[in-house]
Amino acid sequence: MTDLTSHFRGVFTALITPFRDGAVDHVAFAELVERQLEAGVSGLVPVGTTGEAATLSEEEAEDLIARTVKLAAGRAMVLAGAGANDTRKTIEKVQRAEDAGADAVLVVTPYYNKPTQAGLVAHYSAVAEATRLPVVLYSVPGRCGVEIAPETCATLAERHSNIVAIKEAGGTATRVTQIRQACGDRLIIHSGDDGLTLPFLSVGAIGVTSVVSNVAPREMVQLVRAWEAGDTARALELHELIAELTDGMFIESNPGPVKAALALSNLAGPELRLPMVPVSDASRQKIAAILGRFTHAAAAFQEMR
């Protein structure tokens, strides 16, 4: 687990999928990835929730994973989104991600079905047995309607050596303690909520799978590195620096706000695929104001350092 822990430590960016006139904008995607790498992120997460995986074709998803692997060129880990609410389809997605060169797969709980904990054990076991890649569990009850119980995490980590981590997006740091108590050091924990990154780190998580790092990769990387270096005061300053921006990225359903922020920064277009639509004018104005304040504060912060 030691080697894997070092690979999963730090900021993993949940990449958006930029679109132009309905198609994937590969130029903008490549530029976004390079910006992340220059900021020093540890991992890239294509084809996840933020990447609008639900409305990508299988061919688009596999191509984006392969492109991310090529663009990363070993500079960051590629953790590919590969979840579905059908176990057979999930396995197909995982195998496509493996074929595309991903380093690991992020597998969300089946949505809509609301499986029992026994169903989750059976689902993730089938996935783990179908791949050689490390598998990262993804618990996000606000979107999927089901949470992975700490005891279920323990069962899966004990039974399958390639189930190695969990992206925890249940909205409370208490879950980190519960998972650690159930699993010990058998399961790496990532924060799945940007605003809880620092609290999660303080109770045993080692990184974050981040939405806001699409916009502010440098500051997110600095936050985690400050914590790792024992500079808790600086980590707290950075947490407070990005707090309003983090809240702004969720004033409407993700990834609408983060795409609006990137469009305002001339980094990618605001286009989404139905049933997602661009944020309202009122939200866009709020995001513009938040982004302006953040940009000013971040520049002042970096100058002081």
Score class of each variant (00 low, 15 high):
H296F: 11
I188Y: 00
A260P: 01
S265F: 01
K70S: 12
A30E: 15
V164N: 00
G48Y: 00
G230Y: 02
S210Q: 05
I188D: 02
T109N: 04
A205E: 00
H7P: 04
P46R: 05
V108P: 04
G48A: 05
A233V: 15
L120T: 03
G256W: 13
S161C: 05
A130I: 06
D231C: 13
E158M: 01
F12P: 04
F200G: 07
T5Q: 01
I290R: 04
K114L: 12
E303A: 15
H239R: 08
E31Q: 15
E38F: 08
D99H: 10
A297C: 03
T177H: 05
C153Q: 03
E129D: 02
T2F: 13
I148F: 01
R132L: 09
T116F: 04
L223K: 09
G184Y: 03
R96H: 00
A299I: 08
Q222G: 13
G207R: 03
S202W: 07
V212A: 14
Q36T: 05
A39I: 14
T49V: 13
L291Y: 11
V208C: 10
A76K: 14
R9E: 12
L137G: 04
A128V: 07
Q302M: 02
S213C: 08
G81Y: 09
N214F: 11
A165S: 10
E62N: 04
H296I: 15
A243T: 11
A84W: 01
E34M: 13
M304L: 14
V224D: 13
A39P: 09
I188K: 00
L241D: 06
I251W: 10
A80P: 02
T177M: 09
L15C: 05
V146N: 07
N85T: 12
D231V: 14
A72M: 08
I91W: 01
R186Q: 05
R75E: 03
H239A: 13
R35G: 15
L106F: 08
V45K: 06
V24D: 09
S57F: 08
A216N: 02
D193Q: 07
G119L: 06
D231I: 08
A282P: 07
P217G: 05
A122E: 10
L198D: 15
A72L: 07
D247E: 15
R225A: 14
S265C: 06
S210P: 04
T55M: 12
T197S: 13
L291N: 09
A268M: 03
A28P: 09
P150Y: 13
L156T: 01
L71D: 04
E271I: 11
M304H: 14
C183P: 02
V208E: 03
D247F: 15
L71S: 04
A54K: 07
V135F: 00
F8V: 03
A100M: 05
M1H: 06
T87E: 10
G74W: 12
E219A: 14
T209G: 05
R96A: 00
A118W: 12
E59I: 12
A261T: 02
V69H: 00
E158Y: 00
F301M: 10
A66Y: 03
R218D: 10
V135C: 01
A260E: 08
R218F: 11
P150A: 11
I163D: 02
V33T: 15
L267R: 13
G192K: 06
V277N: 06
E98D: 02
P257M: 08
A82G: 12
A73T: 05
A288T: 09
L196T: 11
H7N: 12
V41R: 02
A73H: 10
R225Q: 15
